[in-house]
Simulated scan of single mutants.
Amino acid sequence: MSEVKISAEPRTEFGKGGARRTRRAGKVPAVLYGHGEAPRHIALPAREFAAAIRHGGKNQIFNIEINGGGTALALPKAIQRDPIKDIYEHVDLLIVRRGEKVTVEVPVHLTGEAARDTLVMVESTTLAILADATKLPEFLEASIDGLEAGNHVTAGAIKLPAGAELAADPESIVAVISAAPTAEALEGEAAEAAVEPAAEAAEATPEPADA
C-alpha cells in the first residue's frame, strides 16, 4: 500500500466545541502519538482524508506534513465516523517508522466458487497479521473454489504477503462450506412456520363457560 501525503495544522481548540468548529471548517480533529512522543493535536483536511480511506482502507499509511512542525508517518489506530452525516468525527494516528512491524486487522476477500448445492458461511471478515507498517496489504484472499460441503478455510491456510506473519490463531475459522437445504426441506420449514401461528391461536382461544 502506497503512502498518502496529507497536510495538517496544529489544533489549539479542544473539547466538543472546538471539535465542532474544526469540522465546520472542513477538517477532521486528530491526535498524533507514539514512539514516546507527546501527543500532538492536529487537524486534517476532511476531503483528502476521506478519499484516502476510501481508496486504501483503515490501514492507509499517511505521510503527514504538519504546518510549522515537521513530518510524521502515521497509521490510523481508531477512526470515529458518523454514518448518518457521513463525516469523520475524530482520528487517532499512531506514529510508525519505516521497517517497523505493526499488528493490524486486514479484510479477507473470498475468491472462486464453492461446489454446487453448497452454502458459504463467513465466520470472519478480517485477519490479524504482523507486517511492515509501510507495506500493509489492502486485503487478503482466501480461495473457496470447488470446495465441497463439510470443508472450511482456516486462518493458517491463507497466503500472506512476503514478510508478513499471522497474528491470529492459525486454526481459527474464516469460512465454512455447508450443504444447501433441499427444496423438500424448505417446503417442510414453510409448512411448519404456517402451522405454528394457527396452533398458538387455538391454544389462546378461551373455552366457552358453562351455562
Rank of each mutant, 00 (worst) to 15 (best):
D132H: 13
D82C: 08
D117V: 09
K77F: 01
R98D: 09
R97W: 06
R81K: 15
V120H: 07
L119A: 08
K135C: 04
A128W: 00
E89M: 09
G70P: 14
V120F: 10
I87N: 13
D82K: 13
L94T: 02
T111M: 05
K77T: 08
P76R: 01
G56Y: 11
E138N: 01
I53Y: 06
K58V: 03
G56D: 06
L127H: 01
P76W: 00
L119S: 07
T103I: 15
G69F: 05
V96K: 01
V104T: 02
T111E: 08
V104H: 01
M121G: 06
K85L: 02
V102W: 00
E138G: 01
A74K: 01
A131L: 08
A74F: 01
L73S: 06
G68S: 11
L140R: 04
N59P: 04
T118Q: 03
K58C: 03
T111C: 13
A51Y: 15
A74E: 00
R116A: 10
I66R: 02
L93N: 03
R98P: 08
H109D: 06
L130W: 01
L127I: 12
G146F: 07
M121D: 12
A50D: 14
G68E: 09
E148Y: 08
T126K: 03
K85C: 02
I53N: 11
D82M: 13
L136P: 00
Q60L: 03
L75K: 04
V106S: 00
V91Y: 06
Y88W: 07
D117Y: 11
G69E: 07
